[in-house]
Structures are given as C-alpha cells and as structure tokens.
Design a protein around this nucleic acid. Sequence first.
DNA 1: GTGAAAGCGCTAACAA
DNA 2: TTGTTAGCGCTTTCAC
Lengths: 335, 335
Amino acid sequence: MSDVARAAGVSVMTVSNVLNERTNVGADTRLRVLEVVEELGYEINLTARRLRSGRTGTIGLIVPQFDLHYYGELASRISEALAPEGMHLVVEQSGASRERELSALSLARLQQYDGVLLSAVGLDMADLDRIHPDVPIVLLGEQAVPERYHRVRMGNVEGARLATEHLVGCGARRVAVLGGKTSAPHPEMATYRTDGWSQALDQAGLPHDPALVIPLTTYSIAEARSAISAAVDGGLEVDAIFAVTDEVAIGALAGLHDAGLRVPEDVQLAGFDNLGISAHLVPGLTTIDPDHPTLVTEALRLLRRQLKDRTADPEHVVSGARLVARGTTRGRSAP
Amino acid sequence: MSDVARAAGVSVMTVSNVLNERTNVGADTRLRVLEVVEELGYEINLTARRLRSGRTGTIGLIVPQFDLHYYGELASRISEALAPEGMHLVVEQSGASRERELSALSLARLQQYDGVLLSAVGLDMADLDRIHPDVPIVLLGEQAVPERYHRVRMGNVEGARLATEHLVGCGARRVAVLGGKTSAPHPEMATYRTDGWSQALDQAGLPHDPALVIPLTTYSIAEARSAISAAVDGGLEVDAIFAVTDEVAIGALAGLHDAGLRVPEDVQLAGFDNLGISAHLVPGLTTIDPDHPTLVTEALRLLRRQLKDRTADPEHVVSGARLVARGTTRGRSAP
DNA sequence: GTGAAAGCGCTAACAA
DNA sequence: TTGTTAGCGCTTTCAC
C-alpha cells in the first residue's frame, strides 16, 4: 500500500480511503490512486485489514459433512443469499464428531469470521453452554440448545406427523420409521421426527410396534439401504416407511428394491427435507418441504441483527413444514 | 497473550513458544503457561499469527457450486485427507460464472490460504494466464490450462470411450451423448468426453448423427431431465445414452421414465463420475470411476511440493478411468 | 480533503 | 532457557 501511495504521490491513508470507498477523497486523487493500483497490480492484504479493523466480510458456515446432499444445498442457498450483500461464505466441515466439532468451534477459528452459521449435530447442551464466543452465531439445526443462542430450525414434529398422516391416509396400516430414535440423552432431529411419527399413529389409532423403529447411526444412503434389506429379510412386515431424511429415503428405495418389494404398490415411502434430487427419483419421492428459503432468510436475519447489536435478544425461529406428495405414495384418492 | 504472560510471570515470547510447541521451553514453565491459558480461557488470535508469520494452516478449495454432488464428495474427501496433517480445509463457491470465479480468485482472497485447490470451470486459458498468484495452486479439472500450473484431471477421453464401448458392447447401435459438446473456444469437460464418445463410435463403425449430441448448459439434474424428455418427444430415437456426468445421468433416468421408456430394456444408460449415490439408484447406474482417491492424493501431493518449494516444476497428473457396470446397462452377456 | 502517528496481536531474529 | 526489539500491512484517531 505504501508503494501505491508513493507512486501516486499521496499518503497511505489516502490510498486506504480510496480502497474503502470513503467519501473524503477528491475525485482526481481518487482516479490517480486507482490508476496506480491497477498499474502495480496491487491487492489489499485482507489479513492486515482484519487484524486492525476486526471486519472480515466473511461468514462461516460449519456443517457436519460436505457429502450429505442436504448440506450442499444449504451452503449453496446461503452463499447465493449473501453474495448480493457483498459478503462471502466459506464452509468448513466439522466431521460430525463432538471432538472435531469442538475444534471447529474453537474461538480461535470462529474469530476469523464476522459471523458463524453453525449446523451442529455432535454437540450437546453442555458443550454449547460451555462456549462463550464473542462472534455472532446462529445455530441451524434440530437439537436442543441453550436459550441464549439464536437459532433456526425446521418444524420437525409437525413435518413428521404430516408425512405419517399422509401415508396412513393413503391406506398404510403398518408404518415403520427408518432412522427412528425413541430415546436419546438430548433430543435431536431423529427423536423429534420419531415423535411426529408416533403422534400420527396414535391419532390414527394404530399401534406402534417397537419393531417398526429402525435405528440408523450415520443416516447415509448406504446404511439406510442395508438396514431396510436386513429388516425385510428378517421378517419385518410393513406397508409404508417414513424415512427421517430424504437421503435415508433414497437408501430405502434401493433396499426395498433389493428385497423385491415395489414402491408404492407393496410399500409406500415418504422422506423429509425435499432435496433437489428427490423430485427426480423414479418414482418421485414424497417428502416434507421444510421451507428452505425461509430457513435461510431467517438465519441471515438473525445474524444481521447480531452483527448490528451484539446484545440483541436471542430468537428461536421455526420454519413451517409442507407435504409434497409424489410417486412413492399412492395419493389421497387411493384406498 | 500479554495477559497470559503477566499472569504466568513470563514474557509473551515464552507464551508464544509454548503455544507453538517449540522445544525451547522448560517443562515447568510450559506447564505454568498452559495452566494460565486454561484459567483465563485464552485463545490465540489466528489473524495476528497469520499477518506476522504468513502461515495459516488452512487450504482453500474453490468449487463452482456447492450443490453439485460431485463437489460435495470432493470436498469431503479432501477435508478428510488433510485432517491428519493438522490442516483445515475451507470451501468457497465461485458460482460457475467467469466473473465470480475471478473475484474468488483475486489475489486478496487467495492469500488467506497456505494453498489453493481450484476447480475452475468458468475460467479460460487467458484468464488463468493473467493471474500470477504467489500462493501455491493446484487446478482440479478438465479444461485446458497454461503449462505453468500444477494440475490434476481425470482420464476424460478414455473414460468416455470406455463407457460408450460398453454400451455398444451391450448391443446399442444408436448412442446419444447427453451434455455433449462438439466445439468450444477452449476444450473442457464436455468436449473431452464427447471426443471419447465419438472415438468409440468410430471404432465400432457406427455413424454419429449430429442429432445424437444433446447439449446442456448447467449439467443439472433438472435440465438433463427436461432435455431428454424433449428430445424423445421430438422424435429422437436412441437405444443408449452416454451422460457426461452422473448428475446428468440421474436426470436422464427421470426423463426417460417421463417419456415412457424403460432402462435398460428400451434405452441403456451410462454416466461418468461414480458418485456415491449412483450405486444406490434403481436400477444402479453404470458409470466411469475416475479413481477419486488417486485424484485427491495427487492433488495434495502437488500442493505439498509447492508448499515446500515454490519453484517446483509444474506437473500435470491424469487419473485412470475404470468402468463400473451396473443395472442401467445390460451387461456383456446380453446380445 | 489529506496526512502523521499509533497500534491491532502475534512471531522472526537476535541478545542475554 | 528466556527475554527484547522490531515490524507484518492495514485502519483508527486526530491534527492540519
């Protein structure tokens, strides 16, 4: 920067003012400085700026895994929403383990961002309670969190109920929940969605056999596929499956095929998340749309509020859930 | 850090030495410093460290789009490979447009990383030629690049040829290439893969009707689906499709279903990339495996070489391509 | 409208 | 083994 200042015959402060588009610079001075910047190929050092000013212009998004489609879509949406505001998004992977999540969450790393969107799955209340970051944070996700955090989540129970009601409405009588979890030290995505499933069965007067809860640990396509194959081979009889995520539902589709069962004729299927790919499966996947645009808009609103006022009162926002009926269920007209 | 130093009764330099695990600190001093660090909840300021030392411990990966599954899987693999070395990966989205890619590539942003893995699609030779970063860069991708860049890419032509040969070997006589491109100002993924398709048809003595090249612009599932539907409705007659990516093949699967065609009975299908999901589609997607582990290992090797020696001679590495036959093709035993 | 001085928090280099 | 000095490149503050 001092090279530029020297070549333009001004002080470094003036160069800084020009580059920051401050208004206290004469038009001719401004032009001269910009010319020299171009000529010398000067690029500002963002690290120095950050050290001095504290601003980075960068928002961090921390997700458990890059290769779960849900997080790829989330990152894409957030990135697009930030671009018009001149902010950059960078994404880090925490690896879904408590240990790696805690390390990604170390204040040292968080401080590199103006704000952080944290999609935590491995952290529990106690972990989150211990952390006192001075960077604005918005939690994205389903697990229980301390009150003081700003947070956006989906309508999990409601969505799961909608999906299960739809399956029952389409004639299902034995509805399994793939990826279900009836108890956990702290509530999380799977327990909430299992609750919704459970509520819908209760309302319909259907019993819920514990065998209908098929647990998963990674919620990957491969794991879901083999879990379903194994369950059917093991004698499980179902006429519908509520998969706790679309990713899991994709695995179920394959696993049911492996077991020689047709979807939706023999077994109906519904997922949760409405991934981009879900509309393009064959048959199309019936699923719950958690209103991604609102999720993203609200998360960024909460972040901006904190950016403006560090002491803003925490908000917990819940997005709506909407059923999207496609080919894996037989539709309300069916018996 | 000076607070810690004061509380521990040492100099800031000693605190720095302890935190950097340098060996020139007495065991008792070390312990005392660590105690105080813990007690005060001190966390190092990475920005200041970076400004002074130039090291960041962070590698940047720049991809066109977060929500193409290929990039999610790539990011995940790289992240896992870097973790054991104590390096962090952060991912940025360039948005697939030249403009946004150039901005992501601004020296200012690149300098924030120790090294950069750049998966560029919007940049051409001229753009890349203009950029003279002083950060080690490895290009990941298929487009032509100036010699001075280190670069890893797939065996595109070979892979496309293998896929097309397999389709022909399974009895196909009219093989379309979905996402094909026969000419472009600069060669890129689609042109290379179209070349491979073309070579295989030549070798088999099959004509290549220009109508068999179905162009795409975004290579998204939705675009591929409607392109195939439209082509079939428009009278296109084919008995096989080579899709230039698995993502495109997934769209083709849906589009063929829309058109009332069965896979593989009426139309066989092969993709390219061997995504994680491809094995779990119904039917399983025949595809080309570009040897992801080697791709990642080699990219990181090239990056480490540059990290050690900025003047290391550039290398261009090409990974092998291997056919993975699944249910969307009829297998070699078929007529 | 422009510039000089100070310092963000750390580490390289060297001194003790 | 520990400490001192200087300075990374920028922006804040304040004087002109």
